[in-house]
């Protein structure tokens, strides 16, 4: 019996398990390049990604104004078998404090309904992947941005390894916005997400703008214009509700003394209503579970009576 048991335990230790990193990803979030010391950032474990990483701002980057930063990742050809990929937008490669928000950027939109520097794609369908962030620089000057990727690859000599890639440094020249040029208020924070079935009332604060038109487009690309009304220093416009989980984009067209200004496309994701329970009820139920299962163990046991204890004592004495 003992030998069989030892043999069984020894064999169970030899059973190979399917081991992989974070196959489901870690979700979009604010992450440093090493992603909490995960395997992809560990030089002892990772393999170098040969994807080509590019970054491009769309037009002039004004201080205090939203700007679109487009990241392009190419090289997803047939020699790769990549399903999920995580993309970082970074301000340095120090592996800590390298989120752009630590270098004077605000992330207004990550294009996926959040304000994160790390986003994940569950699959890549074409040879080139293009993704845009909307950032806002707080001051004039030179800034540096990097793109980094974490992914797996089920083909090639390093198949199964955690792949890691980081781009060259891309210099971004942040310029001062001309005086009296119509613009969005530097403090304006666009909404990034809402619930399905909810309309969104925008309250866009501007400087030196005489008229504002809001334009929004469906995921299919069809675009619509919405008139605005000025109220308490806000340009109000209502974006219609989405009927299903989807992401629409909107932008503002500003008229004023200077040439017409158009903001980048801001993403607005519609998500399913979030699940929420009554916190007090959950806490009480947890206590109830503790008491219920504690009591259950006690109640199903036959109580040890005093005469039993006396009998035990007598037996021990004899």
């Amino acid at each position: 019996m003992k030998q069989k048991l030892v043999l069984l335990l020894a064999l169970s230790l030899l059973v190979p398990l399917h081991v992989s990193g974070n196959p489901g990803g870690v979700g979009n979030s604010l992450e440093n390049m090493q992603c909490g010391g995960a395997c992809h950032g560990d030089a002892n474990q990772n393999a170098t990604s040969n994807l080509q990483l590019g970054l491009q701002p769309s037009g002039t980057v004004w201080a205090g104004q939203p700007t679109e930063i487009t990241v392009q990742i190419s090289g997803f050809d047939t020699s790769h078998d990549i399903d999920q990929i995580g993309i970082f937008l970074l301000s340095s490669t120090n592996a800590n404090n390298d989120i752009p928000t630590t270098d004077g950027w605000s992330i207004l939109s990550d294009g996926m309904g959040g304000s994160n520097n790390y986003i994940e794609y569950a699959s890549v369908d074409s040879n080139v992947l293009t993704h845009s962030w909307i950032l806002r620089a707080d001051e004039v000057g030179e800034k540096i941005l990097y793109v980094s990727v974490h992914h797996g690859d089920n083909s090639g000599t390093d198949a199964g390894s955690p792949f890691f890639g980081v781009s060259q440094a891309f210099e971004i020249n942040v310029e001062a916005i001309p005086e009296n040029l119509q613009r969005i208020d530097p403090e304006y924070q666009p909404p990034a997400s809402r619930e399905v079935g909810e309309s969104t009332t925008l309250c866009l604060k501007t400087i030196a703008a005489s008229d504002v038109v809001i334009e929004w487009r469906e995921p299919s690309g069809e675009s619509y214009q919405v008139e605005t009304t000025q109220n308490n220093g806000c340009w109000n416009a209502v974006l219609p509700p989405a009927l299903s989980v989807s992401t629409i984009e909107w932008r503002a067209i500003l008229d004023g003394e200077g040439p017409q200004q158009t903001t980048p496309w801001f993403s607005l994701a519609s998500v399913e209503p979030t699940w929420e329970a009554d916190e007090t009820a959950l806490l009480l139920q947890s206590i109830a579970h503790l008491v219920l299962f504690f009591g259950l163990v006690l109640l199903v046991r036959k109580p040890k009576r005093i005469d039993d204890e006396f009998k035990d004592y007598m037996e021990e004495s004899l």
């Binding site: 959950l282 139920q285 947890s286 206590i287 579970h289 503790l290 008491v291 219920l292 299962f293 504690f294 009591g295 259950l296 163990v297 006690l298």
Partner: peptide, 15 residues
């Protein structure tokens, strides 16, 4: 809920 259920059982067993 599972951790408190497990904790209750463990407490009962020890008690």
């Amino acid at each position: 809920l599972l951790s408190t259920a497990g904790g209750g059982l463990a407490l009962g067993v020890l008690f």
